[in-house]
Design a protein around this nucleic acid. Structure first.
Length: 276
DNA sequence: ATTGAGCGT
């Protein structure tokens, strides 16, 4: 019944808005204890939380750190933001109160003229709201000098801002451009990976059976035959399952992880193909 | 053409 909008915090609701931080772009290997330890070097930490995949348990590369003292939070931003850790550069900023209105505000833009710079793209989108960050993908990792791939990401402050940008700019041609651009909400990394897994399996099945495979049949036929072809993708550790060294999931994102599993397989107990 | 997994039981 609760919709998350009810106020129940009394008079000082913004209290941890000055102590609570969000830390992005953490190295994959960093644990919650290491996160706490790093930020404890600044001051006393009230809580530290590493966000993990709900099913597989691996780090999602970001977390929250709440200090006792607002001045420590401030110093953590000035001293730890931009810190390089194992080829990553972490970002430290104030967290906002969790709210649906700030989620899913990340856009994927394709078909951009190659001449458009990051600033050009931001200038095109900034009228819809506050841009948190943006990135134009380049061909090689030649830094900002590489040729644009005509693909960019823009994260807005609020989802409603991103929605307006999609409605207004999707299918439109930038000034002087020959082709229209595509503006849509970005897929999260799991969806991207699942798409790759599924198309890989589909490819394998198609080759094996000599033609396109119906989705139902494809799902049915996955199992052990495809494992060797998937071995590079999986190797997910499942907490609580001591028997299997590995596990492969295919699941949809953006919803409850428990309800969105399309298919899963545990190594030693992979089901046999039903017939035979 | 989906990034450096950006809002948490």
């Amino acid at each position: 019944m609760s919709n998350g909008y009810e106020e129940h915090m009394g008079g000082d609701e913004g209290k941890d808005s000055k102590t609570n931080l969000i830390v992005n772009y953490l190295p994959q290997s960093m644990s919650q204890d290491e996160l706490r330890s790093l930020f404890s070097s600044i001051g006393e930490v009230e809580s530290a939380k590493l966000i993990r995949d709900k099913v597989a348990g691996h780090s999602l590369g970001y977390g929250f750190v709440n200090y006792l003292n607002p001045s420590d939070a401030d110093r953590a931003i000035s001293t730890l933001n931009g810190l390089r850790l194992q080829s990553k550069t972490i970002k430290v900023s104030y967290a906002r109160p969790s709210s649906d209105t700030i989620k899913d505000a990340n856009l994927y833009i394709s078909g951009l003229p190659k001449a458009m710079t990051q600033k050009d793209v931001e200038d095109m989108f900034s009228r819809f709201g506050h841009i948190i960050n943006s990135r134009v993908l380049v061909d090689q990792a030649t830094g900002t000098t590489g040729a644009s791939r005509g693909v960019a990401f823009i994260r807005f402050d609020k989802r409603a801002e991103a929605e307006e940008a999609v409605k207004t700019l999707n299918g439109q041609k930038p000034p002087g451009a020959a082709e229209p651009i595509t503006v849509k909400f970005a897929a999260n990394p799991n969806q991207v990976k699942n798409t790759q897994i599924i198309s890989q399996l589909y490819h394998n099945q198609s080759r094996r059976f000599g033609g396109p495979v119906h989705h139902q049949a494809q799902r049915f036929r996955f199992s052990p035959m495809g494992v060797d072809h998937m071995s590079g993708v999986g190797n997910v550790n499942v907490p609580g399952n001591s028997n299997s060294g590995w596990c492969i999931f295919i699941y949809n994102l953006g919803q409850d992880a428990d309800e969105s599993i399309l298919w899963q397989m545990f190594g030693p107990f992979a089901p046999s193909p039903t017939s035979r």
